[in-house]
């Protein structure tokens, strides 16, 4: 099995060097998605299944979609096909990186192994059976709250930068609409399943939110105008509900006793409610990041291109 792992590591390093090398942006984006999927395999080999799910869905899938959307916008504004400034030769960088990695290895391996936090010992007190979910939403809930806040801040930033770009000229065909009918319900059911599964096995709010975001991106690509393009009443509440539920839970528990300490016996219910809200928000915020701007009413024809 070590041979398999060494081979996987070698292939990943090769794909990384190939991604960073070269001038064409499209090539780099495609190779980056390949990099993300191989990394998901490595997470599975290390035994971190939650990370494998998250890397495949968020790291490769959503980031790849975001890169493609940006690539499309860049292509539409730039007149020439030629791309991407200068690309210095990568070999000196590879050698420096190898040397630094060797030094780093020696340094890390010479450290005394630290004691593991006793998560398994306290798992019963958290209310869930899965250690990662327990850490995320019971023991270190404060960090997860801030993480949801970071996503909301990203949504606000993207809204502030400009409006959504005008939709592409090519229409979606019947095959895309058919795929939507098949895949979106499956994705919604899978997302709910992953959300519920997070309490006892790898899964949870982030992976579920990424699946819902994938469904949303498919709809955004197929329908013109997409759900993120026109202002609608559900958009802002959906984007903020995760943070709102989480903050409300924090304030309520602060009033009761200790903030973010879920009440005895009810912890699982609190955790699942917070995760459900977070999943919805994550999905809508990732869709907002993909759409790339604030929604604009139909009457306005100019999406803001060029100088005002």
């Amino acid at each position: 099995m070590v041979v398999l792992d060494a081979l996987l590591a070698l292939v990943l390093a090769g794909v990384a060097v190939a991604t960073l090398n070269g001038l064409r942006r499209f090539r780099a984006v495609v190779l980056f998605v390949v990099f993300g999927l191989l990394l998901a395999l490595i997470w599975a080999r290390l035994g971190a299944v939650d990370l494998a799910l998250a890397e495949a869905a968020i790291g490769a899938g959503v980031t790849g979609a975001l890169l493609m959307a940006a690539l499309d916008r860049l292509r539409r504004t730039e007149s020439s096909r030629a791309v991407a400034g200068s690309a210095p030769s990568l070999w000196p960088v590879v050698l420096v990186a190898l040397a630094a990695a060797t030094v780093g290895m020696v340094a890390v391996l010479s450290l005394e192994p630290a004691g593991r936090p006793p998560v398994a010992f306290h798992l019963g007190a958290s209310g869930v059976d899965h250690p990662v979910t327990a850490v995320l939403l019971a023991f270190r809930a404060w960090d997860t709250l801030l993480e949801v806040a970071v996503l909301v801040a990203a949504g606000v930033a993207v809204r502030a930068v400009g409006v959504v770009p005008s939709p592409p000229s090519t229409e979606a065909g019947p095959l895309q609409a058919g795929l939507l009918r098949l895949v979106v319900p499956v994705l919604v059911v899978l997302a709910v399943y992953l959300l519920w599964r997070g309490s006892h096995a790898p899964g949870g709010a982030f992976q579920a939110g990424a699946l819902l975001a994938a469904a949303g991106v498919l709809v955004q690509l197929t329908r013109v105008p997409g759900p993120m393009d026109r202002p609608a009443l559900w958009q802002r509440p959906a984007e903020t509900i995760g943070l709102a539920v989480f903050t409300a839970a924090a304030l309520i528990t602060a009033a009761l006793d200790v903030p973010l300490a879920w009440p005895e016996g009810w912890s699982k219910l609190w955790i699942l409610t917070i995760e459900a809200g977070a999943a919805i928000s994550i999905a809508v915020l990732l869709m907002r990041l993909f759409a790339g701007g604030a929604p604009v009413a139909a009457a306005t024809s100019d999406p803001g291109k060029g100088r005002s």
């Binding site: 971190a48 939650d50 990370l51 998250a54 890397e55 968020i58 790291g59 959503v62 980031t63 975001l66 890169l67 959307a69 940006a70 916008r73 860049l74 504004t77 593991r116 936090p117 998560v119 250690p131 990662v132 327990a134 850490v135 995320l136 270190r140 960090d143 997860t144 993480e147 970071v150 996503l151 801040a153 990203a154 930033a157 993207v158 930068v161 400009g162 770009p165 982030f206 994550i282 915020l285 990732l286 990041l289 993909f290 790339g292 701007g293």
Partner: peptide, 27 residues
């Protein structure tokens, strides 16, 4: 599991930051 939770948080924050950076770039 603590390292896993930390990296999971890191992945989500990375996608948020990448998203904002890409929108800024396109704009």
């Amino acid at each position: 599991p603590v390292a896993q939770a930390l990296v999971l948080t890191g992945i989500v924050v990375a996608v948020a930051i990448s998203g904002v950076a890409l929108v800024l770039l396109a704009r």
